[in-house]
Amino acid sequence: MAPTSYQAPMRGDKADKKTVSQSTESNLASTTSTVAKLLEQKGDAVHAVRPQDTVHHAVTVLRDKRIGALLVTDQNGDMQGILSERDIVRKLAETPGQTLPQQVDGLMTREVTTCAPADALETILRKMTDGKFRHMPVLDDGKLCGMITIGDVVNFRLNELEYESLRMKQMIVG
């Protein structure tokens, strides 16, 4: 039985008049995913420590926030470096039992690869993979505006692929 909203074609109907809720163009339209789009969903929260803070303090923040890296900023919020779990583990191996009282300044990575909000996520994913790092600060005109992780990028991209797959199925089914 046809739905009650169905109207059978009538004499005089124009054959070329057709309405659709989707089009090939809308289903196949693709946009480049950017860091800005990811940050819209994730938010722009950045966790940071100062260079003179102890590693013990940094480890506590990492544990409490359940994150893998902290930005190191000065009193003005300008980025000085990044401190990751890997930096801490390397120092633990070099100075066993003496690492926690040391200052963050002695462990942090000073040369930090950053990205901008307009950067394409595929490019960022490639940089992270090639550079073998998992955290990337986001700078907008030199000012810190967020931090993304390789997990954020992969998850965002998986959600996009799932959505694209759904759109393709809808286009095929009609």
Results as ranks from 00 to 15, higher is better:
residue 1 M to G: 12
residue 1 M to L: 12
residue 2 A to L: 12
residue 3 P to C: 05
residue 4 T to N: 14
residue 5 S to N: 14
residue 7 Q to I: 11
residue 7 Q to K: 15
residue 8 A to I: 07
residue 9 P to S: 11
residue 9 P to H: 04
residue 11 R to W: 15
residue 12 G to Y: 01
residue 16 D to L: 14
residue 17 K to F: 07
residue 18 K to F: 15
residue 22 Q to V: 06
residue 22 Q to A: 11
residue 28 L to Y: 10
residue 30 S to D: 07
residue 30 S to E: 13
residue 34 T to W: 03
residue 34 T to A: 00
residue 35 V to F: 05
residue 36 A to Q: 04
residue 39 L to T: 01
residue 41 Q to D: 05
residue 44 D to F: 02
residue 45 A to Y: 09
residue 47 H to D: 14
residue 47 H to S: 09
residue 48 A to W: 05
residue 49 V to P: 01
residue 49 V to C: 12
residue 51 P to T: 02
residue 53 D to V: 11
residue 54 T to K: 00
residue 58 A to S: 05
residue 59 V to F: 10
residue 61 V to S: 08
residue 62 L to M: 11
residue 62 L to P: 04
residue 63 R to N: 15
residue 64 D to G: 13
residue 64 D to F: 06
residue 65 K to L: 07
residue 66 R to M: 13
residue 68 G to E: 06
residue 71 L to V: 07
residue 72 V to M: 12
residue 73 T to Q: 04
residue 74 D to N: 12
residue 74 D to W: 08
residue 74 D to M: 09
residue 74 D to L: 08
residue 74 D to V: 00
residue 78 D to E: 15
residue 79 M to L: 08
residue 79 M to V: 09
residue 84 S to I: 03
residue 86 R to K: 11
residue 89 V to L: 15
residue 89 V to R: 09
residue 91 K to S: 09
residue 91 K to R: 15
residue 93 A to H: 11
residue 96 P to H: 09
residue 96 P to G: 14
residue 98 Q to D: 15
residue 101 P to V: 05
residue 102 Q to F: 15
residue 102 Q to M: 15
residue 103 Q to V: 10
residue 103 Q to C: 01
residue 103 Q to K: 14
residue 104 V to R: 03
residue 104 V to C: 10
residue 105 D to V: 09
residue 105 D to Q: 14
residue 106 G to E: 14
residue 107 L to C: 13
residue 109 T to G: 05
residue 112 V to C: 06
residue 116 A to M: 02
residue 119 D to S: 06
residue 121 L to G: 00
residue 123 T to A: 05
residue 126 R to L: 13
residue 127 K to H: 06
residue 127 K to F: 04
residue 129 T to E: 02
residue 131 G to H: 02
residue 133 F to T: 05
residue 135 H to I: 01
residue 136 M to E: 06
residue 141 D to M: 13
residue 143 K to C: 08
residue 144 L to M: 09
residue 144 L to Q: 05
residue 145 C to S: 03
residue 145 C to T: 08
residue 146 G to I: 06
residue 149 T to E: 00
residue 150 I to F: 02
residue 151 G to I: 01
residue 152 D to T: 00
residue 153 V to T: 01
residue 154 V to M: 03
residue 155 N to G: 10
residue 156 F to Y: 12
residue 157 R to E: 10
residue 157 R to N: 00
residue 157 R to V: 08
residue 157 R to D: 01
residue 159 N to Q: 11
residue 159 N to A: 05
residue 159 N to Y: 05
residue 162 E to N: 07
residue 162 E to L: 01
residue 163 Y to E: 09
residue 166 L to P: 06
residue 166 L to K: 09
residue 169 K to G: 14
residue 169 K to W: 14
residue 169 K to S: 15
residue 170 Q to E: 15
residue 170 Q to A: 14
residue 170 Q to L: 13
residue 171 M to H: 07
residue 171 M to F: 04
residue 172 I to L: 12
residue 174 G to Y: 08
residue 174 G to N: 12
